[in-house]
Simulated scan of single mutants.
Amino acid sequence: MNYTVLVTGSAYGTQNASTAFLFCQSLIKMSHTLNSVFFYCDGVLNANSLNKPAVDEFDLLSAWQELNQKNKVKLYVCVSAALRRGIIEDQKKLNIKTKKGNFSSFFESSGLVELANSIKISDRIIQF
């Protein structure tokens, strides 16, 4: 089966994102196709490169990055939701003096059109 996963929960503070990650791992282990993971609402906080968990906590940002690298899973972030929450890819465009954004490079900024396209080619969409 083909799946799209929609993550609306932040990386820390709720179980949504970590449960979504575990679900994605299970899909891959069971040889299902994971078309993409789309981060929306507070889910865009998963793409914040400034997230640094305590040493004894699970590093969800690194886990998403590993999922992307090892399995070539697309990680899309709604650009509008990200901007509303201070997740910025290129600060030059926004006339902010510092040049480096806090948008993790393993994620891709996108719009809801990408979510719609992923849903179109999927058998199931699962939201966390």
Rank of each mutant, 00 (worst) to 15 (best):
G101S: 08
N71I: 05
F39G: 00
E57M: 09
I126K: 08
H32R: 13
D42Q: 12
F103H: 07
L60W: 09
Q65K: 14
A11R: 02
A17D: 01
G43N: 03
A63N: 12
Q127W: 00
K120F: 09
T8F: 13
S118I: 02
K120V: 06
T14G: 09
L34F: 06
R84C: 13
I126E: 07
N68R: 14
I88F: 10
D123P: 14
I121L: 12
G43C: 05
S18T: 13
L50H: 12
N95E: 13
L67F: 11
I126Q: 12
F58T: 11
D56I: 11
S105D: 14
E57G: 00
E114G: 07
A17H: 02
S105W: 00
E66L: 14
I88N: 01
K120S: 10
S36W: 01
K74L: 08
S26Q: 13
V44I: 14
E108H: 11
Y12S: 02
N95A: 07
S10M: 05
N2Q: 09
T4N: 10
F107Q: 08
D59A: 07
K52G: 00
W64K: 03
I125D: 03
R84P: 05
L6R: 03
F21W: 15
V7T: 04
N46L: 05
A17Y: 00
N68D: 07
Q69S: 15
V113A: 15
K97N: 11
L61C: 14
K97I: 11
D42C: 02
F103D: 02
Q65C: 12
I28S: 06
Y40H: 11
A81W: 02
K52N: 05
V79G: 03
E114W: 05
K120P: 00
G101E: 05
S105Q: 06
I125K: 04
G43R: 00
L45S: 03
N16W: 00
R124T: 06
C24K: 04
M30S: 15
S109P: 11
A116G: 11
N35I: 05
I126H: 09
Y40I: 02
A17L: 00
D59Y: 03
K120W: 01
D59C: 13
